[in-house]
Each structure stands twice: as structure tokens, then as C-alpha cells.
């Protein structure tokens, strides 16, 4: 048990903290390196809106903004203050919907993205792994070959393009799915059966995008893992002992090939999250991606900062959770 803590858990906790530390530090440094002064940009934007403001008020506003952005004091003081606010869970008010706190806006958007992403990631992982293992174990099947070709064809295409093609085909040319959103304008989200149905219909294409792109990677990965594992001693041995094929495929081949895929799932979450953001923009799905787009259009600097920080912490935490689950599947880690 001590060995497990020392050799498995401790390095992972360290890595988790490192990811957050590096990520947050990068988001702290970027605005300070950029040639744009966010305060000046904000001031000039308010001025250009045409309202006449007296110079004193402008100066006052400038100070308030500097304070809010955490730009007062030396860089080190700023950095410490930055962490201080973060640990208190304070990301400041949104500028475009002043004074709504950034955290509340993110809190409203996050469940949509999370629900969609979680479903899509789990589905594509399971489907990709099962089919990938079958593809390798039964290399002669025509159907599996067709799936192989399809997954190879979709895999390299960026999320945006896949989403766009699906949107054009299934909402525009053959209108079986709604064009955009998570529910029609005017309905209020609730847990009634009819709303759930509407929600599912609206989420089908966005989810399909994530599944289609994600699936190929798991499929190809599992295929190559499986083809390595079927020549492992314990599989050849199991075949020689006359254990039934089904049992060998599930308990010997897939069970072992799955392990690197679990690690891979953790490593891919960042990329999938990025994909989900852009997919939401295409389908105007009211999650983190749409919030990002609004923030960009409305020049809401603090909201973008908040989204970046939340994303980093969120993804790092999910990866860490995956690390915590992993020993359940691998006794070699569990009993060192």
C-alpha cells in the first residue's frame, strides 16, 4: 500500500498540480506579454461608443479596470494576487454583462457542455474499443473493414469541418434534425419528458460530431493494441488450453488492450474539450463554446480569461480522476 502511494499516487498528484500550475501561469503571462493593454482597449471601446464622458470619470474607470484586471503592483505582486483571487474562486465580473460574475456565466454554460461531452466521450470510447478489438480479432470481416475505412476517413478531419458537413447534410439537405441550439427558442429547460425528447433531438448532431471524430482514434488504437496483444504469451497460451473464444476475446484480449486506452482517454480529454467548444459554435449549442464566441464578439476579456482558467482546471481534474480510477482495472498497479 505504501508502495502504491509512493510510486503511483504521489507522482500523479504532483503531475496534477504541475498541469494546473503551468496552465494558470501561462494564462497569467499571456496578457502581460501581449502588445494590447486590456485596460486601454476597454477604455477606448467605451469611449468609441459615443457617450461623452468627462476626463475625471475616465481616469476613475481606468483605475477601477486596472484594479480589476489585477494589473497594479509589480509582476510578482500581481501573480500572487492572481492566485489569491483564484483560490477564493473569484474570477471577477463579466464586462459585457456587468456585474454578473464570470463564474455564474460559466456555471450556466458548463452543464450543457459537460453533459454532451461526457455522453459522447464514453460512447465513442466504448464503440471504438469494441469494434477495434473485433476488427483485429476477426480481420476478414467485410463489415468491420468498411467501418475501418470510414473511421480512417473521418479521423483526420477537424471538428469544425465534420460538424459543418453533418449540419449541412442532416439539417439542411435532409432536414431530420434541428438546425441549432439545445432547445427551441421560447421553451424553458425542464425535466419533463417532452423537453427531454426535444433536448435529445437537438443534441443528436452535436453528439454525433464528437462521436464520429473521437471514435476513429479509439478504433485505430484498439486495433493496433489488440493485434499486439493477440500474440502475447497469455493469449496464445489461453488458446492452447482450449478456453472458449469469446472468453479469450473479452477477458484476455480486450481486458488487457483496454488498459492503455484508459490512460489515452485521460490524455485526450483536453483535445476533445477543444473540439466540443468549436462544435458548439457550429450548432449554436448553449455551452462553453457559445459562451466563448459571445465573449469574443463582445470583447469580454475577463470572461475569456475565466473560460481559459476553468477549462484548464476542469480538464486537469478529469485527467486526475481518470488516474484515480485506473488502478481499479490494473491489479499490477493496485498491489505493487
Amino acid at each position: 500500500m505504501r508502495k502504491f502511494l509512493l510510486h503511483y499516487l504521489l507522482p500523479r498528484i504532483a503531475q496534477y498540480l504541475t498541469v494546473i500550475f503551468i496552465g494558470i501561469t501561462v494564462t497569467f503571462i499571456i496578457p502581460r506579454l501581449s502588445p494590447t493593454d486590456p485596460v486601454e482597449a476597454q477604455v477606448s471601446m467605451i469611449l468609441s461608443s459615443g457617450s461623452a464622458v468627462d476626463p475625471e470619470a475616465i481616469e476613475h474607470m481606468r483605475q477601477a479596470l486596472t484594479e480589476m484586471y489585477g494589473l497594479s503592483g509589480s509582476p510578482l505582486e500581481q501573480y500572487i494576487a492572481f492566485w489569491g483571487r483564484l483560490l477564493r474562486g473569484d474570477l471577477g465580473p463579466s464586462l459585457s454583462t456587468f456585474p454578473t460574475p464570470v463564474t455564474r456565466l460559466i456555471g450556466q454554460a458548463l452543464p450543457w457542455t459537460l453533459g454532451l461531452m461526457l455522453t459522447a466521450v464514453i460512447l465513442s470510447w466504448i464503440i471504438g474499443n469494441v469494434l477495434g478489438a473485433l476488427a483485429s480479432y476477426y480481420p476478414k470481416s467485410k463489415l468491420i473493414y468498411a467501418i475501418d475505412l470510414m473511421s480512417q476517413a473521418v479521423r483526420p478531419i477537424p471538428y469544425y469541418v465534420v460538424a459543418l458537413v453533418l449540419l449541412v447534410v442532416f439539417a439542411y439537405l435532409i432536414p431530420i434534425f434541428p438546425f441549432s441550439g439545445a432547445y427551441p427558442v421560447g421553451t424553458r429547460p425542464s425535466l419533463t419528458p417532452s423537453f427531454v425528447l426535444i433536448y435529445l433531438k437537438h443534441s443528436a448532431l452535436p453528439a454525433l460530431t464528437l462521436i464520429l471524430v473521437g471514435f476513429g482514434g479509439w478504433f485505430i488504437g484498439m486495433k493496433s493494441l489488440t493485434s499486439n496483444i493477440i500474440s502475447e504469451d497469455y493469449v496464445v497460451y489461453a488458446e492452447t488450453t482450449g478456453i472458449k473464444e469469446r472468453k479469450i476475446l473479452t477477458q484476455y484480449v480486450m481486458r488487457n488492450a483496454m488498459l492503455p486506452q484508459i490512460t489515452g482517454l485521460g490524455l485526450s480529454l483536453g483535445t476533445v474539450f477543444s473540439g466540443a467548444l468549436i462544435m458548439e459554435v457550429v450548432f449554436q449549442y448553449p455551452g462553453m463554446g457559445m459562451l466563448t464566441l459571445q465573449a469574443i464578439f463582445r470583447n469580454d476579456y475577463s470572461l475569456i480569461m475565466g473560460i481559459a482558467i476553468y477549462s484548464i482546471i476542469g480538464v486537469a481534474t478529469s485527467v486526475f480522476l481518470m488516474d484515480l480510477i485506473y488502478p481499479l482495472f490494473d491489479p499490477r498497479v493496485r498491489y505493487q
Partner: peptide
């Protein structure tokens, strides 16, 4: 059959 390299003939997760 008692296989060559019996070190690795047993399924590591079972």
C-alpha cells in the same frame, strides 16, 4: 502444454 516463458503465460489482470 507448459509453455516457453511461462512467466508471461498467465493473464496479468486475472
Amino acid at each position: 502444454y507448459v509453455m516457453q516463458g511461462s512467466m508471461s503465460v498467465l493473464n496479468p489482470v486475472r
